[in-house]
Design a protein around this nucleic acid. Structure first.
Length: 578
DNA sequence: GCCGTTTTCGGCCCGACTGTTTTCAGTCG
């Protein structure tokens, strides 16, 4: 992903959202969304297409959009968007996040009551004005008040994937600036916290803060920014992600990086170790009080405290310092140990690639095993496979398998829906024909804990099921997912030796952190999958691996790190018992 | 606003559900 493509895509999406609220023609709006999608998928920077006069070759880009892209590349602005934002307040877009409010209802609120943002909506709701608007009844008012309260109670969390992208864009941007000696990602993003409140950067530079600010404001994805009283820079990107830029001297970069990385509990643990030695640890350095020595890198800091360097994703104050002191840090799943994706989709259901192309993409990624697991019939919207089509797909799998030989192991499987009562969406004799079966919940995600737990336990006990996919079915930020008695599910998984999935899609990360920690302690088998629908989705595995490292998952329990022969033996053994 | 050999204008994805209505508009996936 290139920053310039993302910057344009976001602006086209915003144009589409604002036009929709204004009530423009639906197909025009769709054209902007399509153009945004094209830019997201584009491998090369759009600048190259512009330079070569090839913008019109991109799908969904016609004369009008090509002109807007050209304008943005030359001026950093799209005048149509600037004008539109003056007419339709962009704060109205916040209202779209509330369930039940779409563009038409937002327009009605704006036009009849002059509501322009969340506070004015809340005021109007409380003043009883909203039910006067046609289309808004008592139920809607109630629901909106509830949604508003929930929305405000929730700390603003952002996608780690987006924060990491932004972090690397800005770090690259800064490293090209003369006078910037070092720029690094720090804070919760560096620790791979699954959902983050903000992005933190640490910069050592001989450039005054004001100048640094204008350099950062020149980045196409940065929207606003200011220098705080304490000298830090506070910025916000196009998606509303807050970005804190901390400044440090080059000589004390090590301590500054450790303190800004956190967590607070981990840093305090380090300070206690320093105190035990009669020293003082501060962001400026380490040593006897008043004589702290600046420390330029983290390795030196940890060594001075008689510790091995502790990876950021472990620094949560959950016993990692004690473990490190005793030389008993857990053995972590290596970043490059992920060699199998056991959950992927092709164009047979809702994936973007033909089966053959997906296998090629997997092989290019260095995967040694790929399971093709398209949807079952209950997923109409996703074009789920009838039994007949599933069997036809098997023929294609066998052809592709013959082409690839033993370079990559291709498994034919399915992601079969777990129906609300816990039964599965294919009959047993069909499941028996598959190499691997993932069972996942997609529908009826508002069940109560008892119903949902019974449902998942029943699926986990099914003889043909190998993996439970995204067990809660959560989807950030809209769907919290099923409430579950996790211990009951873990017991069932252990008893039947079924693996639970960590779905690495950054919107899912399900199992989540708490669930996974308990699963790891219970010794349940774990499958880290990407649920890839596009070839670039394979990159998601990093989020799953990071989660496994954060929760101290024993690498030997991770199916995706096994040798293909062992995985096959496990699957065969399960089949023979079923 | 884009697209195309049925082509330079007319079509572009749609069905289920919900809440508000009294026959349907808007949301959601």
């Amino acid at each position: 992903m290139h920053a310039i493509n993302l910057a344009l895509a976001r602006r086209f999406e915003r144009l589409a959202d604002l036009l929709e609220i204004r009530g423009d023609e639906a197909y025009k709006i769709r054209a902007y969304r399509r153009a945004a999608e094209t830019l997201y998928q584009l491998h090369e920077p759009v600048t190259r297409y512009a330079e070569e006069g090839r913008l019109r070759e991109l799908p969904g880009i016609g004369p009008a959009l090509a002109r807007k892209i050209q304008e943005f590349l030359e001026t950093g602005e799209i005048s149509a968007l600037t004008r539109l934002q003056r007419e339709v307040p962009p704060t109205l877009l916040d209202l779209l996040h509330l369930p039940g409010l779409g563009p038409a209802k937002v327009r009605a609120l704006w036009k009849t009551l002059g509501i322009t943002d969340l506070p004015s909506l809340e005021a109007a709701l409380r003043a009883g004005k909203v039910h006067q608007v046609p289309g808004f009844g008592a139920r809607t008012v109630d629901r909106l008040l509830k949604a508003l309260a929930e929305f405000q109670a929730r700390p603003p969390e952002h996608l780690l994937a987006h924060a990491r992208d932004m972090g690397s864009f800005l770090v690259q941007w800064l490293r090209d600036v003369p006078g910037v000696h070092r720029a690094e990602i720090t804070g919760p993003v560096r620790r791979w916290v699954p959902f983050v409140p903000h992005l933190d950067l640490l910069v050592a530079a001989s450039v005054p803060p004001g100048e640094l600010l204008s350099i950062l404001l020149g980045h196409p994805l940065v929207e606003t920014g200011r220098v705080q009283d304490d000298g830090r820079l506070e910025l916000r990107d196009l998606e509303g992600l807050p970005i804190m830029v901390h400044l440090a001297g080059e000589a004390s970069f090590g301590t500054a990086w450790a303190v800004t990385t956190g967590s607070v509990a981990h840093w305090q643990g380090l300070q206690r170790l320093a105190e035990a030695k009669g020293w003082h640890l501060s962001p400026q350095g380490l040593g006897p009080v008043g004589e702290e020595t600046p420390i330029p890198d983290e390795e030196t800091l940890y060594t001075a405290l008689d510790l091995p360097w502790i990876p950021p994703e472990l620094r949560e104050g959950r016993g990692e310092i004690e473990a490190a002191r005793q030389g008993a840090l857990p053995s972590l799943l290596p970043w490059d140990a992920w060699k199998a994706d056991l959950h992927t989709h092709t164009r047979w259901s809702d994936g973007a690639l033909d089966l053959r192309d997906l296998v090629t993409a997997a092989w290019k990624r260095g995967l040694r095993v790929i399971a093709i697991t398209d949807h079952s019939p209950a997923q109409h919207v996703a074009n789920g496979l009838s039994v007949e089509r599933l069997r036809k797909q098997r023929e294609e799998v066998e052809k592709v398998r013959a082409e690839w030989g033993d370079r990559i192991l291709i498994l034919h499987g399915a992601e079969v829906d777990i129906l609300p009562d816990g039964s599965l969406d294919y009959p047993d004799e069909v499941l028996a024909e598959l190499d691997i079966v993932i069972a996942s919940p997609h529908m009826a995600l508002r069940q109560d804990a008892q119903e949902a737990t019974q449902r998942l336990v029943r699926a986990a006990s099914h003889p043909w099921v190998d993996i439970i996919g995204h067990p809660r079915g959560r989807m950030w930020p809209r769907r919290p997912g099923l409430p579950l008695d996790m211990d009951a599910l873990l017991r069932a998984a252990l008893e039947h030796q079924v693996a639970l999935e960590v779905n690495s899609n950054p919107h899912r990360l399900d199992l989540g952190e708490e669930d996974l920690r308990r699963a790891a302690q219970a010794g349940v088998l774990i499958a880290i999958n990407t649920d890839a629908h596009h070839p670039h989705d394979f990159a998601y595995h990093l989020f799953g691996v990071a989660l496994a490292r954060r929760t101290w998952v024993d690498p030997t329990l991770v199916l995706n790190a096994w040798e293909p022969e062992r995985l096959m033996a496990w699957l065969r053994e399960r089949k023979s018992r079923a």
